[in-house]
Nucleic acid binder design. Structure first.
Lengths: 213, 213
DNA sequence: GCAAAAGTGCACATTAGTGTGCAAGTTCTG
DNA sequence: CAGAACTTGCACACTAATGTGCACTTTTGC
């Protein structure tokens, strides 16, 4: 109520609220229990001012989650490739480029309290991934030794781990590592992964497709 | 000093200290910031009594890490298989059976403060894994598209994720899922993984090696 | 330019956890 | 059994964080 003035809402207020959400996401990604003082300061505001936008820490975190949900939704709807393995590659790459968001979601989900809400925010993405997996299993391009449900989760965990725990600056990586890992988990041999990356990469000219030793 | 009486050390004190360490590991695995009251209570002691064994929280956590280090050391020394991929399988399976320990290590390592100590406690295990990877790459049984150092870390992260984040009770799993994931990450196609698990499993008779469609 | 909205700066109450001191009990160990 | 080792149960000081109240300044919008 106090946080839904609906009509009058000053420009600087909108900007500050947005900045708070962005900074909260970044700080939480770095440390799940970042203090409100830290977040407010990062947004160039006082801790006291933060309470003008969010009634308490809980409200802020929920807003961060919902903000992330929109983005995840966009990603889920945004991918469009010819076949399952390409979709998987695209999905992984896109998430890699949203590393901070993925990181924050993972950090928030550590708290029991936000488990269900975080899960809900990831729902569209999960549904998309599940569809890809089922499709891939049907056409025999994705492994058949693990049930679709389990494999979907396995791929999700793998991607999350790679994105969250790898230094984005790592020279060897450049988004290729997560893709290699995910495709491997999907069931491809490393030679197949290599061949696929070599052919699909319209850019990435410097990366030679030499393959084995 | 006050915690190295060396000679006189009553039996119940030894037992309680050990119980404290065990409970601390379990509680920290469940929640990285478990309070000392929670830990002491789990061990059937008072928070005040805990301070008789460990000067402060830091000392307790360090003791937990060092206790884990011994166990990891034993695992690193304990594996002995004919070839790299079998060693990888055995290593993964053993760690799976030490889930609580792996979980606690991962939880403690979340704190900047204990990063280096945790890393040191895992050193023997990492060295063993690195040796397996290098060996496997030399003989061509393990993927060659990723550097040994990166692949070692990749396998470690994959195994940790699976062990920490999967419900041990899951019917489909029974230690096979982590092994499948690790072998896939090592570069094998899912059919090769399937074949390997079917032949290696001296037990596990019910699992049919049907393979692809 | 003026009123309302938004932000500042402080003081304050509250909570949960850590670490210590001390007097009193309980439990080993020789 | 006697004495030492261990544990208990409190009381206490201290810290870091949350959330609120209020007077005051700055910014925005009409």
């Amino acid at each position: 109520m106090a946080h839904t003035p609906a009509h009058t809402l000053r420009r600087d207020a909108v900007r500050n609220r947005d900045e708070l959400l962005a900074c909260a996401q970044r700080e939480i990604a770095r440390d799940p229990r970042a203090s409100l003082a830290t977040i407010a300061q990062a947004a160039g505001l006082t801790r006291r001012a933060l309470y003008g936008h969010f009634s308490d820490r809980d409200a802020l975190v929920r807003a961060v989650i919902e903000r992330g949900a929109e983005r995840f939704n966009a990603i889920a709807n945004g991918i469009a490739a010819a076949e399952p393995l390409d979709e998987l590659t695209e999905l992984t790459t896109r998430l890699w480029h949203e590393a901070s968001l993925v990181h924050a979601s993972a950090a928030i989900a550590l708290e029991e309290r936000y488990l269900s809400l975080t899960a809900a925010s990831l729902a569209p993405l999960r549904a998309r991934l599940a569809a890809i997996v089922e499709d891939g299993q049907r056409t025999g391009q994705i492994r058949g030794d693990i049930s679709a449900a389990t494999l979907t989760r396995l791929i999700e965990e793998t991607a999350r781990t790679l994105i969250v725990r790898w230094d984005q600056q790592d020279a060897e990586v450049t988004a290729q590592l997560p893709v290699r890992a995910v495709l491997s988990i999907a069931g491809l041999s490393w030679q197949d992964v290599e061949a696929r990356l070599a052919s699909t990469s319209t850019s990435a000219a410097t990366k030679g497709a030499s393959g084995a030793r």
